[in-house]
Computed example of a mutant assay.
Amino acid sequence: MTAAPEVMTRAPLRTIRPQDLAEVYTQPNVQLTRLVRQGVVRKAAPGVYYALPDDRDRRWVPTLEAVAAGVATALYGDRVPVLMHLTAARLHGAIPRAITAAVVAVPRKHPTVQVADRPDGTITFVTRDVDALDAVLLRTDLGPALVTTPEQTVLDLTKRPQLGGMPAEAEDAVRTLLPRCAPERLARLAHEQRMGATLARLRAAHEPS
């Protein structure tokens, strides 16, 4: 079977845009269509493609969280986007079942994207100061990506529980993650990011009376 080009397999999260192949192919879109047909590359979203890992067959599909990380990285650059909110909660194990919404913090506005490799799945881009977010590097199916810490995630879920359209799951994730959070780190982040009211609401809802 034909292999994906090295520029794809070495790209962050194995994900690229056609223009990233301009130095390899004179007609990147034509070659990507061929590679998709051969099953070694898959379309992730409009204008974004990922190479399947070498040890996976054509039926394998990465998690939505991994695809969201790859798409955002292809659009904004390596280690720039930060997986947040429901997506961070998923990667921290606070939402056990697969969901159809992904949320990514990015430095500039971008419309919501419908993913192309599964029947349902959207990526919502939230404009944030990504450098100010408290984040760690975690593994996904396609490679490592920045993900908000439990403390940052809890604050974000509490501030915007409706983001992603799953408020009940957001609330459950807060309950799961809160015992893992360091109170002093929560307080520091809330102060630095002007989320004092969010922290007060979090405490009122979850601290023993």
Rank of each mutant, 00 (worst) to 15 (best):
M1S: 14
T2K: 11
A3M: 13
E6H: 09
M8C: 03
R10E: 02
L13Q: 14
L13M: 15
D20M: 13
L21M: 12
A22M: 03
A22H: 06
E23I: 01
V24Y: 02
P28Y: 06
P28L: 04
V30L: 15
L32T: 03
R34D: 08
G39L: 09
V40H: 03
V40R: 05
R42I: 08
A44N: 10
A44E: 10
A51P: 04
L52E: 07
D55Y: 07
R58N: 03
R58M: 05
R58G: 00
V61A: 12
V61C: 07
V61D: 02
L64W: 10
A66R: 09
V67C: 09
V67A: 09
A69I: 08
G70V: 06
A72Y: 11
Y76H: 15
Y76N: 09
G77K: 03
D78S: 11
V80T: 14
P81R: 10
V82R: 06
M84V: 11
L86M: 10
A89C: 10
L91A: 11
A94H: 06
I99L: 14
T100F: 11
A101Q: 14
A102K: 04
V103K: 00
V104A: 12
P107M: 08
R108M: 09
P111M: 01
Q114T: 15
V115K: 08
D117I: 10
R118D: 05
P119A: 07
D120T: 13
G121I: 04
T122W: 07
T122C: 00
I123E: 09
F125Y: 15
V126R: 07
T127G: 00
R128E: 12
D129P: 01
V130T: 15
D131I: 00
L133P: 01
L138W: 02
R139T: 10
R139P: 00
T140V: 02
D141V: 10
G143F: 01
P144Y: 01
A145F: 04
L146K: 11
L146Q: 13
L146M: 12
V147A: 11
T148C: 13
T148H: 09
P150F: 01
Q152H: 03
T153R: 04
D156Q: 14
L157I: 08
L157R: 12
R160N: 13
R160P: 00
P161H: 06
L163C: 06
L163D: 05
G165A: 07
G165C: 07
G165T: 06
P167C: 11
A168C: 00
E169S: 14
A170Y: 01
A173L: 09
V174Y: 03
V174M: 04
L178A: 07
L178T: 08
P179H: 06
R180E: 13
R180D: 11
C181W: 10
E184F: 03
R185L: 13
R185I: 13
R188G: 03
R188I: 00
A190E: 04
H191Q: 15
E192G: 01
R194E: 12
R194F: 05
R194Y: 08
M195C: 06
A197L: 11
A197R: 15
T198F: 01
A200L: 12
A205G: 03
A205C: 05
H206N: 14
P208I: 07
S209T: 11
